[in-house]
């Protein structure tokens, strides 16, 4: 059977570089299989995260030929073999070792978001038309590929000011929950810096769950921020009617 050459980043914070490995190709093989082959037969200390190997847990994120991907869902036969296949760690996060990066920033951002808070005396009735929209967001497997590809994080390093697509999706799932009673628009505008997003849609392009992050989560949230902060007419209406959601 044919061989493929993989060029894998090996190294850590101090030093590192690309190293080439020859891997025999089996039918239906994915990049993660090739990495496992390297671990099992060539270099057992190659560091790579993985769990389910079926695109459901979001552990095996890396950059294959320069594109952020789940390695368990990237078929070898879909990649050109004329040149080595490059496998690099996610660029937006500090490397720990080889393909393993420090993604703790994501968990810190998550903590800033107020949890689901139901209305008092809620009758737990919900209808499919209300949950459809939110269920799309709940598909997120936290692979953090969207965080990796987002240029606000990747090129502008604004990890303090910005929450990133993953957490806009999470906020959207809470804000649009039919029984949630808390407003997170101020958080979006200030702590999560949704204004830094210039909707260039790379997050949507890389999402393995095919969540329409930009169109269905970020833009609707931007519109909600406009409702709250940038629309003088709506502000006036709210003033007259005396309605505002709790924060």
């Amino acid at each position: 059977m044919a061989d493929a050459i993989l060029e894998v980043f090996r190294g850590n914070q101090e030093a590192g570089g690309a190293k080439q490995y020859t891997v025999p190709i089996a039918p239906g093989m994915v990049v993660l299989d090739a990495l496992h082959y390297i671990q099992g037969h060539l270099e057992p200390d190659l560091a790579v995260r993985w769990n389910c190997k079926a695109g459901k847990c979001g552990s095996c994120s890396a950059e294959v030929n320069g594109r952020p991907r789940l390695t368990c869902k990237t078929r070898m036969d879909a990649l050109p073999t004329d040149k080595p296949i490059t496998v690099y760690p996610m660029k937006s996060f500090p490397v720990i070792k080889d393909l393993v990066t420090d993604v703790s920033w994501n968990y810190r951002v998550n903590k800033k978001i107020p949890p689901f808070t139901p209305k008092p005396n809620t009758e737990w009735k919900m209808y499919q038309e209300d949950v459809d929209r939110v269920q799309e967001f709940r598909k997120c497997i936290e692979c953090f590929l969207c965080q990796d590809v987002c240029h606000v994080v990747r090129d502008h390093h604004m990890k303090e000011e910005f929450g990133g697509p993953r957490f806009f999706v999470r906020v959207a799932s809470l804000e649009m929950h039919p029984l949630d009673n808390v407003s997170r628009t101020k958080l979006l505008k200030n702590e999560l810096g949704i204004g830094y997003c210039n909707i260039t849609k790379c997050c949507t392009e890389v999402c393995p769950e095919e969540i329409k992050i930009t169109d269905n989560a970020i833009i609707p949230l931007k519109e909600r921020v406009v409702d709250e902060f940038y629309d003088p007419i709506l502000k006036l209406v709210r003033k007259i009617r005396g309605t505002a959601k709790a924060e």
């Binding site: 949890p115 689901f116 139901p118 809620t122 737990w124 009735k125 919900m126 209808y127 499919q128 949950v131 939110v134 269920q135 709940r138 809470l174 929950h177 949630d180």
Partner: peptide, 18 residues
């Protein structure tokens, strides 16, 4: 299961909203 729902889980619904 009801507890999960009260913590924010969203299950598929029946036409009665359950």
């Amino acid at each position: 299961v009801r507890e999960l729902e009260q913590w924010g889980a969203l299950f598929d619904r029946t036409s009665d909203g359950d």
